[in-house]
Every structure is written in C-alpha cells, then in structure tokens.
Amino acid sequence: MGEVFLQSLITGVTVGSAYALVGLGFAIIFNASDVVNFAQGEFVMIGAMSAVSLLAVGLPFVVAIGFALLITVAIGMMLEKFAIEPAKSATVVSTIIITIGASIFLRGAALLIWGKNFHSLPAFSGEIPIHLGSATLTPQSLWVMGVTALMVLLVRSFFKRTVTGKAILACSANPMAASLMGIPVRRMMLFSYGLSAFLGGVAGVLIAPIAFTSYDAGMMLGLKGFAAAILGGLGNPMGAVAGGVVLGVLESLGAGLISSGYKDAIAFIILLLVLFFKPQGLFGRAGSDRV
C-alpha cells in the first residue's frame, strides 16, 4: 500500500507538472483577454511532434528542442494574429469557439504532416532509474519537475514584479483604459499567446520521452490542463499550477489504488465536482463586479 502510494505520488507530480504548464498557459491567456484558449493542448502536441521531426532530420538534440519551441511560439502567435485578432469585435464566447475551431484545424494539420503514428523523444539524460525505497524515479521525471518549477517561478515573477506583467492584467480588466494608458493591447495579446504556446511547447518536449505523442495527444492534455486551471481558479496562474499537480497526483493515486482504467474519468469527475460546488476554484477569488 505504502509503496503504491509513493510511486503514485512520484508519477502524479510528474504528469501533474505537465498539466500545470498547460494550465498556466490557460491562465495567462484568460488573464489577458477573458478567453479560454482550447487550442492550448495543441501547443503541447506541436512542441513534441516538431522536436521529434527535427531530431529525425539529424539536428543535435538541444538545437532540435530550441527550434521546436520556436515553431510552437510562432504557431501560437499566428493563431492570435490570424484567427483571434481579425475577430476582435467578437464576444468572448465566440472567441472561445474560434479557439476550438483552431484546435481542430491544428489537429487536422498535424494528422496530414505527421500521420497517425505514435512518436517519442529520447530521455534528456539517460534512462537509469533512481530508487527511492521501493519506488523508482526516472531522470526524465526530475527534468519535468525541475523545468516546470523554473518556468512557474519565472512566470510568477513576471506577473508579480514587472510593469509589463501588470500591463497584461490591465488589458483584461479594461482594454480601453489600458490602451489609453499607452499599452498596445494587441501586442500584449500576441505576447500572451506566444508565452502560452511556449509553455505548452515546453510541456510537450518534457513529457514526450515519458508519454508517447501523436497528432491527437493535445486534446486530452488540453482538457486536463483546463481542468487544472478550473481547479485552481481560472485566471489565477499559481492556482492553475497547484491544480495541475493536485490533479496529476489524484489521477495517478486513483489509477494505482483503484484501476488505471479510471485514470481519465477521475480528472473529469474532479472537474465536474469543482464546477458544481466551488466554481471559482480552490484558490480563485470569488468573482465580484462593481456596479
């Protein structure tokens, strides 16, 4: 029992880190524009698949990953530039539907480019597992947790301490007042999509050596990341991160203690419970509108 628990915890935190990065991406775009970007999961897939392809053409590992992240950021910004920006007078709900359309488009394009096969990246630094009592920890898990922690700290410090971070928050609170304060709202939006895509791409590259990736891998990861963001309180970046880790741990505990067949169901049951009983999320501030 104890060993199952420890092993599930390790696996859970690893998978949860990926959810956390995806959830963080959701929170950033939501914070900037009140839009839930359902193409977030596709960024993860594009990051991983691009890295696989670039590696296959013979690029060195680090270069391949660097370019894969660049491609992901470019696609994120193109999504904003060519799908979101032209619809700038659309309501939030219409924009969300546009992102769903974009996610289907990106998935379809990935199917045409990469086919239906599963792909994987080699682990960053070997496969020799580290033993912690009866549980094992792969070096890749450490990479996932470490890089996620670093990303989270950078993003947190960006929004907490920098004026540009505040400027992005201002865009969501009141776009008109923000632009009158000299903030280029569209450029901030472009930046938010780029940053979210980057985080998604990082998650994709980190998790690809552990989980296989395919053209439709983004769908489930996107939904889990969304669940993480909801769990943490949408629009609360650090809540999304905590939500991701909690979700990952609960999911793998459920898989370990009950049955692995229920793994995905657990995530969505949690999502439903949160939406029913605490729609502002575990760490979200209760919504209040001033009249």
């Binding site: 004026v163 540009t164 505040k166 928050l169 201002a170 609170a173 007042a177 304060m181």
Partner: peptide
C-alpha cells in the same frame, strides 16, 4: 475606468508602462 483586479499602486504602475525599456 480603474483596473479593479489590481491594487492602487499597481494601477499607477500600469500608467508607467510606456517608460519601461527592459
């Protein structure tokens, strides 16, 4: 038209945005 998701000081900092270079 205040940014109600921020503190008083943060509202002012947003106004400083255009002077930032880093």
């Amino acid at each position: 038209q205040i940014f109600f998701n921020m503190s008083v000081l943060e509202n002012c900092l947003v106004g400083c945005h255009r002077h930032g270079v880093t």
